[in-house]
Design a protein around this nucleic acid. Structure first.
Length: 435
DNA sequence: TCTGCTAACACTTTTGAAGTGG
DNA sequence: ACCACTTCAAAAGTGTTAGCAG
């Protein structure tokens, strides 16, 4: 685990997030740097949806210089994760770091599709140092690492020209947000529901990426103590070098494919003993050509323990060969959850934008939110993603109007606005009452 | 011809509704 | 009526593959 204060001992606790200096990254050709400033979290861009949050206005000073971004590939020894923040004492650790490192050592690739594809491995982190009583939001976004487009050369990735123009920046808000520090610290926080797409007109709010480009996920933690203020109480921004990846529409490196099949329970069918393994597929093709025959089976059954479900917080990459990352079994899942084990209904009512539109993602009641929502709050929205308006040149974030929470023009995609339920009321999501 | 993208496919996992029993 | 548990079907998430477009 890395503590931000160890990384930036000279910064103290009150500094502002800001843009790094492109020139500081030696792996980033100056010619490509134009228009590709690394957009670290700009506090102003969050005002649109954080306006209901926080405590005393926090004065933030100059941003620290960013360390070099990592390059992808087996030759790099990952530097410590980077963190920028004005939340003293808060630190984040990547829970599934070993898995990420395995992928990173080969050169992580993430499939992106028009409909949206989940990340695997997913970002799963543990947080410490939060104020147990204060509320926080967890955000995730993905930013380009450099200004290059990449190409698979049979053995490795190489830059092959200038990157495509920057796409709209979207932020994924963890469904539990806002929740108390105690809630976030109780168990690892998983972003396994994040989806990546290459559709620039994506209506679902997924994070939009270009194929064959290198990206870096970032996790932001925002303090939110009072729900009706125009200010927020600080922000911490983290990124883990081993989570850098290249987006693709089809896997290029067969070693990555093998790793994904081995580690992702959904791909179990493609394992050596799976019914969808190459041997079986070939056999099926032969059978098709010969005509119908009884289907065989058991011999090729996986025999593995079924991978279990993941809740909104714990879920993510699960590898059934790894006991430490063993999925929660159905039996285990039936055990009563801890008081803050699930997402919160109040969190939804207060920040419905934090939840996906699908009913399956609806939160469970969370007693850590005893108070009813403010009836005077503006209309919320039903998407876990916010699209942030790029500033001039497409690289900087523009200050958002902070007059209302969830300013409609800052949010794109999804069936909203939805009617805001009064205190104790229901939100109509697909005609089903919530709680 | 090569490269990148898409849709269809078969398979597995996840989720929620319905049913059952205490 | 309520709760806990089980069963089942539908939805969603996988990588593979063939075909298409530039």
């Amino acid at each position: 685990m890395y503590h931000p204060r160890e990384l930036y001992p000279s910064l103290g606790t009150g500094y502002r997030l800001g843009h790094p200096q492109p020139g500081a990254d030696s792996s980033f050709p100056p010619a490509l740097a134009e228009g590709y400033r690394y957009p670290d979290l700009d506090t102003s861009k969050l005002d649109c949806f954080l306006s209901g949050i926080e405590a005393a206005p926090h004065t933030l000073s100059a941003p620290p210089p960013l360390p070099l971004l990592p390059s992808l590939g087996p030759e790099t020894a990952p530097p410590p994760p980077e963190a920028l923040h004005s939340l003293p004492g808060v630190s984040l650790s990547l829970e599934n770091q070993e898995l990420w490192k395995e992928f990173s050592a080969v050169g992580t690739e993430m499939i992106i599709t028009k409909a949206g594809r989940r990340m695997f491995p997913a970002c799963r982190v543990s947080v410490t140092g939060l104020d147990p009583e204060a509320r926080y939001l967890f955000l995730l976004d993905v930013v380009p690492v450099d200004g290059a487009r990449y190409r698979w050369q049979g053995q490795h990735w190489e830059p092959s020209g200038k990157a495509e123009p920057r796409l709209p920046d979207r932020v994924y808000i963890h469904p539990d947000s806002p929740a108390t520090g105690a809630h976030w610290m109780r168990q690892p926080v998983s972003f396994h529901r994040v989806k990546l797409t290459n559709s620039t007109l994506d209506p679902h709010g997924h994070l939009i990426l270009h194929s064959m480009h290198k990206y870096q996920p970032r996790i932001h933690l925002v303090r939110a103590t009072q729900l009706c203020s125009q200010h927020w109480g600080g922000v911490a921004s983290f990124r883990f070098p081993e989570t850098t990846f290249i987006s693709v529409t089809a896997y290029q490196n067969p070693r990555i494919t093998q790793l994904k099949i081995a580690a992702n329970p959904f791909a179990k069918g493609f394992r050596e003993n799976g019914r969808n393994c190459k041997r079986e597929r070939d056999a099926r093709v032969k059978r098709k050509l010969r005509g119908p025959e009884p289907v065989a089976t058991e011999a090729c059954g996986s025999g593995d323990t079924p991978g279990g479900p993941c809740d909104s917080t714990l879920g993510g990459d699960i590898r059934d060969s790894d006991p430490e990352q063993a999925p929660v079994s159905r039996e285990a899942a039936s055990v009563p959850a801890p008081p803050c084990g699930g997402p919160s209904a109040e969190a939804y009512l207060l920040h419905p934008a934090a939840f996906h539109g699908a009913p399956s993602h609806l939160p469970a009641r969370n007693p850590s939110f005893p108070e009813a929502p403010d009836p005077g709050r503006p209309t919320p929205y039903s998407t876990a993603f916010l699209e942030l308006q790029p500033g001039p040149g497409g690289s900087a974030y523009q200050a958002a109007p902070s007059v209302t929470s969830f300013a409609p023009h800052f949010i794109q995609g999804g069936p909203f606005p939805l009617p805001y339920p009064g205190p104790g009321g229901y939100l109509d999501m697909g005609s089903k009452p919530m709680y």
